[in-house]
């Protein structure tokens, strides 16, 4: 008969399957968007590594996560941003209701330091956003982070470049984010237990407030480039929910 602590530690893991799928989707935090919650079977997984593959910076990957940052920081928990690509702009963070003293920006000098700081933050029960700017971390390194996240019940978000999709990832959840037209974020699910890979959904980020009359006077081109061909229809405006950014 297995000993009690062993059983406890097994049940604590995200990837232990229990009858009726009890443990798998229990520890989730809502994304704040009904459609995304539905896609992710409840919300962002807690105590797991989530990998967000973005085609490029600035398409709305961060505003997608602002609700969870707000949730965590208002619970007096620290949110660590490891090697962000640009400088976070404080006024917009304050607008989103995030207390600034709960944010910590960490800059690492080497991949080794990056991994150490990431693991340390996870074990310190902070909400970690990590950007792999140097080189995509190795599978074993990511596995280490995934294990640490499982033990410390902290959600971890890793932002990867599109090249990362070629390699395997130990992350529990893997999403690809791209934007086909401004303010609409297209989310492709690449990995989540219990869900077919390749499932897609679209989320709107803010309204299109174009004051064309004024812009017409500008000495620059304001014609939006042609929308690339998509293999699925774009959603009607009524279907999408809006973020306040």
């Amino acid at each position: 008969m297995p000993s009690e602590p062993l059983l406890d530690s097994l049940l604590l893991r995200q990837d232990t399957w229990r009858g009726r799928n009890r443990s798998l989707r229990k520890h989730v935090i809502t994304t704040g968007k009904e459609k995304l919650d539905k896609l992710l079977l409840g919300g962002w997984p807690v105590s797991a590594l989530t990998e967000l593959v973005t085609q490029q910076n600035g398409i709305g990957e961060l505003s997608l996560l602002l609700p969870i940052v707000k949730h965590y920081t208002n619970e007096n928990k620290l949110c660590v941003w490891l090697d962000p690509p640009y400088q976070p702009y404080a006024p917009s963070l304050v607008n989103a209701g995030i207390p600034l003293d709960k944010l910590l920006i960490v800059r690492s000098k080497s991949s080794k330091e990056w991994l150490w700081a990431a693991e340390q933050s996870i074990r310190g029960k902070a909400l970690l956003f990590a950007w792999a700017n140097r080189a995509q971390p190795r599978y074993s390194a990511l596995r280490k982070l995934q294990l640490a996240a499982t033990e410390s019940l902290a959600p971890v978000f890793l932002f990867s470049p599109p090249t990362a999709l070629k390699a395997h990832s130990p992350a529990l959840l893997r999403l690809e984010l791209e934007s086909l037209e401004p303010n609409i974020l297209s989310v492709t699910l690449h990995k989540l237990r219990g869900k077919m890979p390749g499932t897609k959904t679209q989320i709107a980020l803010g309204e299109r407030t174009t004051e064309r009359t004024l812009l017409d006077k500008l000495p620059v081109n304001i014609q939006y480039p042609k929308t690339p061909q998509t293999d699925f229809p774009l959603l009607q405006k009524d279907d999408v929910q809006y973020l306040n950014t």
């Binding site: 619970e75 007096n76 928990k77 620290l78 660590v80 400088q87 976070p88 702009y89 404080a90 006024p91 963070l93 304050v94 600034l100 003293d101 709960k102 944010l103 910590l104 920006i105 960490v106 800059r107 690492s108 000098k109 330091e113 150490w116 700081a117 340390q120 933050s121 310190g124 029960k125 902070a126």
Partner: peptide, 25 residues
């Protein structure tokens, strides 16, 4: 709920104070 200062301390000890910052307004 763990005291967050412990984490900051350990990051500080290993990476140095210049590696840590936070946005201000």
């Amino acid at each position: 709920q763990k005291n967050t200062s412990e984490l900051i301390d350990s990051l500080n000890a290993r990476l140095g104070i210049e590696a840590l910052s936070r946005p201000t307004i």
